[in-house]
Nucleic acid binder design. Structure first.
Length: 811
RNA sequence: GCCGAAGUGGUGGAACUGGUAGACGCGCUGGACUCAAAAUCCAGUGGCCGCAAGGCCGUGAGGGUUCGAGUCCCUCCUUCGGCACCA
């Protein structure tokens, strides 16, 4: 028996596919379109098995859609700006651009070896001027629509990467950099922001898209919507007042103090002489603390009295105003009304400083005694003047309305989401197209002057300053408005900007009169199927939704959402069940595997290893099963059978298996259950093997089965299927064939194995036709020897017949 | 602490809306082929008892609902992911 020669088949078909341009996707209005995208890889320089795990199954789905008659666009590109290129440049003394483009070439070759149906004429590389020209152009549209602004504020700074980060890029309890794991610090810097918070409410609406619940939950959580009331508190004996935000207006009669964040603007004004020294010392200490210390929930809640009092809006009583760092300046108004009886934090604080803790929401069955911990649930309002007796739920609205009538407050929705900080103090990124002029202020670079080219001769040492600042030729520029000498913005953009709109650039990567050709857009958009890792749930996946919504409002796209359907694949771990990393030495190299087993075997194994969204540890012993299956299938379909005197029969069993397999594989690919689709094909091969030795070879049923096997394999193992197809006399190309349909009649089993349970335990099994009536099935069940034995003549109380499933006899 | 996902043989994993737990693969055992090996093919493979027929136990733990629970409900345990003074 001859084995499948993957090396020559892969070379042969790769060449043929390229020559015939088989994967070129062009607008064809006679067919339904399907736009599939797999998250674009970063140009790290080496294709990891993780890239294969992300891309190959995605390719299977795209190929399958193609065979089902869709006009499929499946492009690929490279996320090419970013810090690793700059670090490589510093370490190896090569330019980030040459490092990046060298990596692009390597990775392109590696990706091509995967045999995916990528349309390479659509390739987009985000660091190319023809790409980032439009990133800049889009930035200008954001600026013109007041969605981009520059502001001085405390920002997260990664001391390792030497740049600021967006809030989304700071992870974990210790607030570390998402890229390099270094804990971030705070700095006060003048930075560019995109107003993503304008879209907070709309971003919470997932009704138009089919995205995993997990991602929806993470984004919802991240946006952090909360409804409450914002109202004014007057400072006693002062002109000044301050605003507070609360989600529990029903607890307002329980307010016994108020708290300002240490950075609150009013602190200096209202602090009395006698308290000044103490307050100053506290603020000083708070500012010296790291963010981590400050935000630690372990830390005891402390603060200092300002000496001033606020006037309670209902009782008119004076409540002391404290300064405490458990109130954040960045959320709400930076000031709170404190209700110790009904808030854990306020309770701790009041206990520590001996502040009165009156109960105003009575829990059910409350005995009137003081509380030992804060009661944060619902209840009945007490000690609340005119509101006594209302449920806390009804009181919520009643108090809110009264505050509004008094003209001091209104209902308000707050979000945890912050605006997106996009300035980065590094070289290898997209320049922000803005100019600062001493007389005109901030001036946008005119669109016709785009792109603002990144100079190739900048010094990029990690000084903490943007390298472009030191480049005089870049920095000094005439103001486009008045012609006087001005300076360019020297920070570059967060690379997540580049990847927020790449699905649009793919449509026409060479188009030079807009970010994309609307003729292409009208046909292909939006993306129908997006696949990629979950790690971008609150970064890229949030940003790209924001971009699309903003672009929609600018009239650039029509859709509300960029990607209709999303699937998150899992992660392939090392053989030791740990995350793959060079330092652990557990990295699996796809190049090596492809050399040993061939592309198709690697693709097949990755799909078989586990459910796609689950991921699994790599297992090199288990990998052997894939090439074994391919060789076996090869032998089955190519080699003639050994002589046999068996009768081939009518082939009904084989036909049944064929149609059952079509159904199973079709349904499984549809639901991304590639592992069970592969299992079904293996079962099919086992059936073919049996049929072959039963002398079915060459019959009509065999021909149908052979053809079907190749077609079902085509999306998963494109080279292998193409070679088998040709060997069997099929016309080029197997990938242009229609996906087979199953006939439900033929797929129907001839007999069903029916288990008989007595009191829920299986006691016998018998074969029965699926057409048998319930009475017949019941009769047969009762006739089984072992059933009779167990019944011992006793009369069954009840017999449950589940059609085509089982019989359960209750005694 | 809050939110979410998951715990199934030696192993990776199957199991439709509650209906034969362990599909398919890996590994292992035995056999065929071979001088021998590899490859391939055939048979077996959750545990325990039994010559067999068959029986008992079994999906992280313990309860419950049901004729019937891996699947539904309650209480725990463990692992992973996200959030965490957000008023």
């Amino acid at each position: 028996m001859s084995d499948y020669d993957f090396k020559s088949a892969e070379d042969k078909w790769q060449t043929r596919w390229t020559e015939s341009d088989i994967y070129r996707s062009v607008i064809d209005k006679s067919k339904p379109k399907h736009y599939a995208v797999t998250m674009l890889p970063y140009t790290s320089g080496d294709l990891h098995i993780g890239h294969w795990y992300a891309m190959a199954p995605s390719d299977v789905r795209a190929r399958w859609m193609r065979m089902r008659g869709y006009n499929v666009l499946f492009p690929i590109g490279f996320d090419a700006f970013g810090l690793p290129a700059e670090n490589a440049a510093i370490q190896r003394n090569i330019h980030p651009a040459s490092w990046t483009y060298k990596n692009v070439d390597t990775m392109r070759r590696q990706i091509q070896s995967m045999g995916a149906m990528f349309d390479w004429k659509r390739e987009a590389v985000t660091c190319a001027p023809e790409y980032y020209r439009w990133s800049q152009w889009l930035f200008l549209q954001f600026y013109k629509n007041e969605l981009a602004y520059k502001q001085l504020s405390p920002v997260d700074w990664c001391p390792q990467c030497n740049t600021t980060l967006a809030r989304e890029q700071v992870w974990g309890e210790d607030r570390h950099c998402e890229r390099c794991n270094t804990p971030v610090i705070k700095k006060d810097l003048n930075q560019w922001y995109l107003r993503i918070t304008d879209y907070a409410e709309e971003l919470l609406d997932f009704s138009r898209i089919e995205w995993p619940d997990r991602v929806q939950a993470m984004q919802t959580n991240w946006i952090g919507r909360s409804e409450g009331v914002e109202f004014e508190m007057q400072v006693a004996g002062h002109e000044d007042s301050f605003r507070v935000f609360t989600t529990r207006p029903d607890t307002i009669f329980g307010v016994t103090f108020a708290v300002l964040a240490p950075e609150h603007g009013l602190v200096d004004t209202i602090t009395t002489e006698s308290q000044k020294a103490e307050v100053e010392a506290y603020r000083e200490a708070a500012s010296r603390q790291t963010e981590i210390e400050r935000l630690s929930t372990e830390k005891e809640r402390d603060g200092v009295f300002t000496g001033a009092h606020a006037v309670h809006p209902f009782t008119g009583e004076g409540v002391p105003i404290y300064v405490a760092d458990y109130v954040l300046t960045t959320y709400g108004t930076g000031a709170i009304m404190a209700v110790p009886a009904h808030d854990d934090r306020d309770f701790d604080f009041a206990t520590r400083y001996g502040i009165h803790i009156p109960v105003v929401i009575a829990p059910e069955g409350w005995d009137g005694k003081p509380l030992e911990t804060a009661y944060i649930g619902q209840g009945t309002m007490v000690n609340s003047g005119e509101f006594d007796g209302l449920s806390s739920k009804a009181g919520w609205g009643a108090v809110a309305d009264r505050l509004q009538e008094k003209g001091i407050g209104e209902k308000r929705t707050n979000y945890r989401l912050r605006d997106w900080l996009i300035s980065r103090q590094r070289y290898w990124g997209c320049p922000i197209p803005m100019i600062e002029c001493p007389s005109c202020g901030l001036v946008a670079v005119p669109e016709e002057d785009l792109p603002v080219l990144l100079p190739s001769d900048a010094e990029f040492l990690p000084t903490g300053e943007s390298p472009l600042k030191l480049h005089e030729g870049f920095r000094n520029v005439a103001c486009p408005a008045c012609g006087e000498p001005g300076t360019r913005e020297t920070d570059t953009m967060d690379t997540f900007i580049c990847s927020s709109w790449y699905q649009y650039r793919y449509l026409s990567p060479d188009f030079d009169s807009g970010p994309f050709d609307t003729e292409e857009g009208d046909y292909w958009l939006p993306v129908d199927q997006y696949t990629g890792g979950i790690e971008h749930a609150t970064m890229h996946l949030l940003y790209t939704r924001f971009f699309t919504k903003a672009m929609r409002d600018m009239g650039l796209v029509e859709d509300d959402e960029p990607m209709l359907s999303l699937f998150n694949q899992g992660i392939i771990l090392g053989e030791d069940s740990e995350k793959m990393s060079k330092s652990r030495g557990n990295v699996v190299s796809p190049d090596e595997l492809v050399g040993d087993y061939g592309t198709d075997a690697v693709r097949l194994y990755l799909m078989f290893i586990s459910r796609w969204d689950q991921g699994a540890p790599w297992n090199s012993a288990s990998m052997e099963g894939a090439p074994r299956f391919l060789n076996k299938t090869w032998g089955l379909l190519i080699d003639p059978p050994e002589a046999t005197d068996k009768d081939g029969g009518d082939g009904q069993e084989l036909r049944r298996l064929t149609h059952q397999t079509i159904r199973k594989v079709t349904e499984d690919i549809d639901t991304f259950s590639f592992n069970t689709a592969v299992a079904a094909l293996m079962t099919f091969a086992n059936g073919l093997q049996k049929a072959k030795s039963d002398a079915c070879f060459g019959t009509e049923a065999w021909e149908e089965a052979r053809r079907t096997m190749i077609l079902l394999l085509a999306p998963m193992t494109p080279f292998f299927a193409e070679e088998l197809w040709e060997q069997g006399g099929g016309d080029y190309s197997v990938h242009d064939q229609a996906w087979p349909e199953w006939d439900p009649e033929l797929a129907r089993p001839s007999t069903i194995e029916m288990p008989v349970q007595i009191n829920g335990r299986v006691r016998a099994k018998f074969e029965v036709s699926p057409d048998a009536t319930q009475e017949e099935v019941e009769q047969l069940a009762l006739e089984q020897d072992n059933v009779k034995r167990h019944l011992e003549g006793a009369n069954p109380k009840k017999v449950i017949v589940v059609p085509n499933r089982l019989v359960n006899i209750v005694v």
